[in-house]
Design a protein around this nucleic acid. Structure first.
Lengths: 162, 162
DNA sequence: AATCATGAGTTGATATGACAACACGTAAGG
DNA sequence: CCTTACGTGTTGTCATATCAACTCATGATT
């Protein structure tokens, strides 16, 4: 993006009163939070209603399926959520007997977390519903669209981490 | 998307243990929440530190610049946030003398919210910083990339609203 | 052996956003 | 005129996510 003045003006809209502010339809980060809020709201509602589990706990089920034995710190880093929230989620999952925890090596600080059979079963049940919802959410997207969206979101994420 | 079994398998990754779960790098909605969380975390940190204002209140400043005289209900619908949160944000902004409120018509329920001069000045100051951050966040994006990202996020948002 | 630095994980407090219920007021219908 | 339905906005409560501070234990340094 060579001429940044040009680009900055691109994201602005001029109001009837002559003021300038962010365009709701042309600023990617505005669109990002709009879409993410709506997605999260709907996911939370569906997960709570059908499985009595929150979005954060579902995310942990995915994380521990992907990385059995993960620690709080590794999970926090992988899914981009503060470790305090991860710690709390694991505590809830432990209460529900969806995970087990084992100390790693002889270092009691390092805990390895794994799903129980009950946890794996719940994960598999929810995955079916999530994939079905995903299909509707991506209705009308071509394969190229999906690959582009993933590529661009990943690039944005990398820029944010820089 | 014709063959949905194909597509559903596309978002899945098989773990070393033979389990299937969502791919963190190929599922757009996973990438969406990753990017949105990181963006929100950084925005909140920067806004709080430099202007002593939260992300939600900033969003309301943009909303009222865009639509002076907007109501709680209109704002909630436009920015996709629950009206309870909008109501609270406006209350905070009122306390800080950044907005004023006038009843519409003769119906005391319908309130019109507008920025004060102090609110407009703060909005303008923050906008400069937000645009500067946006430039960094979109570093390496071509114009086509930005247009694509906006188009795809808007499409996803529409699918979520359906 | 003692001290210090560092990291893992937990907990208290807070911001954000949602859900539900409610008070209130207007408009519509009988 | 009375009743009902509906929408606006507020408030209580809760889930999510963060920030900060803390406890605890290990490894490094002296």
């Amino acid at each position: 993006m060579a001429d940044h003045d040009h680009w900055q003006k691109f994201f602005l809209v001029e109001t009837a009163e002559g003021a300038q502010t962010l365009s709701f339809s042309r600023t990617p980060t505005v669109l990002l939070t709009f879409a993410a809020n709506l997605f999260t709201r709907q996911s939370a509602a569906a997960l709570t209603k059908q499985f009595d589990i929150g979005a954060m706990d579902w995310r942990m089920l995915v994380m521990l399926t992907r990385h059995p034995g993960a620690s709080v710190a590794l999970s926090a880093e992988t899914i981009g959520i503060d470790k305090a929230a991860v710690s709390r989620s694991l505590s809830r999952l432990l209460d529900k007997k969806l995970v087990t925890c084992i100390a790693q090596d002889r270092d009691p600080r390092r805990k390895q977390w794994k799903l129980t059979k009950k946890g794996r079963d719940l994960h598999d049940d929810i995955l079916v519903v999530v994939l079905s919802r995903l299909r509707k959410q991506l209705d009308g997207f071509t394969e190229a669209d999906i690959l582009d969206l993933s590529r661009l979101l990943e690039k944005l994420h990398k820029n944010l981490q820089a």
